[in-house]
Amino acid sequence: MSEVTRDGDAQEFARAASRKIIHVDMDAFYASVEQRDNPDLRGRPVAVGGDGPRGVVAAASYEARAHGVRSAMPSVTARRKCPELIFVRPRFDVYRAVSGQIRAVFAEHTDLIEPLSLDEAYLDVTENKGGVASATELARIIRARIKAVTGLTASAGISYCKFLAKLASDLNKPNGQAVITPRQGPAFVAALPIARFHGVGPATAARMERLGIHTGADLRAWTLADLQAQFGKAGGWYHRISRGIDTRPVQPDRQRKSIGTEDTFPADLTDLAQARRETAAMAVKVWRLLDDRRLTARTVTLKVKYADFRQITRSRTLSVPLASAAETQALAFALLDPLFPTPKGIRLIGVTLSTLGDPDAAPPEGRQLTLL
């Protein structure tokens, strides 16, 4: 590595290291809400989700996790791992209400809040409303306040960047917190297994392992040029994060990237007409969600999961925004129809709209349905 690159890395690291970021993650959120509201469930293995042959675990209590039950696991598999598992139907209206209480706690301390989901968020507390100098102490205050308001426990990670704060929040779960300081950051990343890196999925991790990259230290040994040659634009991210550098800001106004819905069916679909009916309903639903949020979209993505759990996606992007629910439906049909006749039954279909934008930016007339 040249001196210029080293100097550049040092400057970038110094800029990032001046921040104080907390990642707050609720402990087994959905399941904990159910155990809070029903004393009979406390101390018992609980799964939130459907218990039927097509059911999927949305969340599992720590008692269930001890038996190997995990979120996104088919319910039949979860039941096999833990015969005494108690299934509870999800109550998303309740979870959203509790999430609102939690975010109100965050807002007592900072306006720089980036929610990732109902149960986790990044907080930039470099400057905070209470003037608390220690981010570690502020994390304790926030966790205690969440407990007092909701009766639920949260874990927290404290660091100088989002990447490490999120990792740290997992280190002492449940109901704990951990700190990774700027001094500790590079060494922590060096020892980190490559599969735990944000942005490295299973396929990329396997590819890296074939290249001899097993840890952050292995990744750090590669030059920026070599990483970009192997991984394209992502190579720059891998190069920086292997050195403990993550300058991404906490973004309270982070724009939504997509709007979608999906459904798992009681019986596999093999008939095109039936699949079209399900897809049409989803297309109308996502269009309404888009319209409610005063957004436009140019991309329609169809997701299909077969009976053997193999999953495919098909997308089309227009040169101009979608004009109506009918057009959304027509585009979804154009993606669905070539999949039939299908050799396997379809257990799940999803429709997602993306490439979102401001409706005021859309051309008012002269639009053409042009597939890119």
Rank of each mutant, 00 (worst) to 15 (best):
S169M: 05
Q101N: 04
Y160T: 10
R91A: 15
D119G: 15
P186R: 00
T136V: 15
G157Y: 03
D111I: 00
D111T: 06
A187Q: 14
K129I: 13
Q177A: 09
I180E: 13
V149H: 03
R145G: 02
A139P: 03
E114M: 01
R91K: 13
S155K: 02
V125T: 09
R96V: 14
N175L: 08
I102G: 05
S117H: 06
T110W: 10
K173N: 06
V179C: 12
G151N: 04
F92V: 11
V132D: 04
P182V: 00
F106Q: 04
L152Y: 10
R183Y: 00
T150V: 05
P182R: 07
L112M: 15
A187E: 15
L152C: 07
P115F: 05
Y122H: 03
L167M: 14
I113C: 06
R145I: 08
A165M: 09
A154K: 02
V189C: 04
N175G: 04
V179W: 08
L123I: 03
R183F: 00
E108S: 09
N172E: 11
N128M: 05
L112T: 14
T126C: 06
S117I: 09
T181H: 01
Y160Q: 14
S99W: 05
Y122C: 05
Y95L: 01
E120M: 13
A148M: 03
Q184E: 15
D124T: 04
R183D: 13
D93N: 09
D119I: 10
E120Y: 11
V98T: 13
L164P: 11
Y95C: 03
I141T: 12
D170T: 07
F188S: 02
K173E: 06
T136G: 14
A168R: 11
P90Q: 06
I141Q: 15
A139H: 06
L112Y: 10
A191N: 09
A144K: 13
S99H: 06
A178N: 11
V149E: 13
E120H: 12
S99M: 12
Y122S: 08
A187S: 14
A154Y: 08
I180P: 14
I141R: 15
G185R: 06
A178Y: 14
L152Q: 12
R145A: 12
P174N: 05
I102K: 13
L152A: 10
R145M: 08
D119N: 11
L138K: 10
P174I: 07
V94N: 01
L164V: 14
P186H: 01
K162W: 03
A156Q: 05
E120I: 03
Q184T: 00
L164A: 13
N172K: 15
A97V: 08
G100W: 02
